[in-house]
Simulated assay, not measured.
Amino acid sequence: MKNKIITLLQNYEINLNINFPIFGLALYQLLKREFINNLIFGEENYSILHIAVLNDWLNLVFSLISNWLIDVNYKDNSGNTAWNYACMLLQPKIVLLIKTKDQLMRADKQFLKQLSSISTNWKLLVAQENNKLASVRRNEIISW
């Protein structure tokens, strides 16, 4: 499924690039953002970012956020964002890719504090984290 998603995105981007001289940069970015934010899957109404997080596809998550400007605050039918799922699935690198400390809302910070206090797995994962920058940023978020 990951390859199909990547192929879909690549084909769309190729078509946009062909017509780029006609569109101009602003319209190009708008069309790209609108396309990616309107890809909704299943009865749960998952965004493509939800699917990437649920499958732990770190590179695709990075691409969706940095290259496609996907809406990270989109909520599925259960009211969860992709960030919520990354927290619940103990994916600290994805958690920090989706939202930086400056982007966290009060409810997000409370959610992280609750998760870190009840989940021993989260604490073990934090201890095993190899990326020191991610560890520092995660500790800043949790201590907020």
Rank of each mutant, 00 (worst) to 15 (best):
E43R: 01
P21S: 01
N19W: 11
L58D: 02
N45T: 14
K32S: 00
L54Y: 11
I22H: 05
I40M: 00
N45V: 14
K4M: 12
F20L: 08
G42P: 01
I22G: 06
L31H: 10
N38A: 12
E44G: 08
D56C: 15
I14S: 06
N19R: 13
I36P: 01
Y12E: 01
T7F: 15
L31S: 04
E13I: 06
L31Y: 11
F35P: 00
F35Y: 11
I40N: 00
N59Q: 11
T7G: 13
F41D: 07
E13Y: 04
L27H: 13
L58C: 09
N15M: 03
E44K: 10
L16G: 05
V53C: 04
W57S: 06
F41T: 01
L60N: 06
Q29M: 12
Q29V: 12
N55E: 15
I5M: 02
L27S: 12
N19A: 13
L31W: 07
S47T: 00
A26C: 12
N37S: 06
K32G: 00
A26W: 12
I5P: 02
E43T: 08
D56A: 15
T7I: 14
N59W: 10
N55A: 14
N37P: 10
N37E: 07
H50G: 04
F35T: 03
W57H: 08
I6A: 09
N11L: 09
Q29H: 11
E44A: 09
L54W: 11
N15F: 01
G24F: 15
K32T: 02
I18W: 08
L54E: 10
N55R: 14
G42H: 05
Y28E: 02
N45W: 12
S47L: 01
L8G: 08
G24S: 13
E34A: 11
N37W: 09
L39R: 03
N19T: 15
L30F: 07
V53S: 01
N17E: 06
F41A: 02
N45H: 13
Y46I: 10
N55G: 13
I14Q: 05
L49Y: 09
K32W: 08
T7W: 13
L30C: 06
H50L: 07
I18N: 07
Y12F: 06
A52M: 10
L49Q: 03
P21E: 00
L60Y: 12
I5R: 00
T7H: 14
K32Y: 09
L30H: 05
Y12W: 01
Y28N: 01
A52N: 09
P21T: 03
W57E: 05
L58E: 05
L58I: 11
N59H: 11
A52H: 06
T7V: 14
H50T: 08
S47E: 02
T7N: 14
I51W: 02
W57F: 09
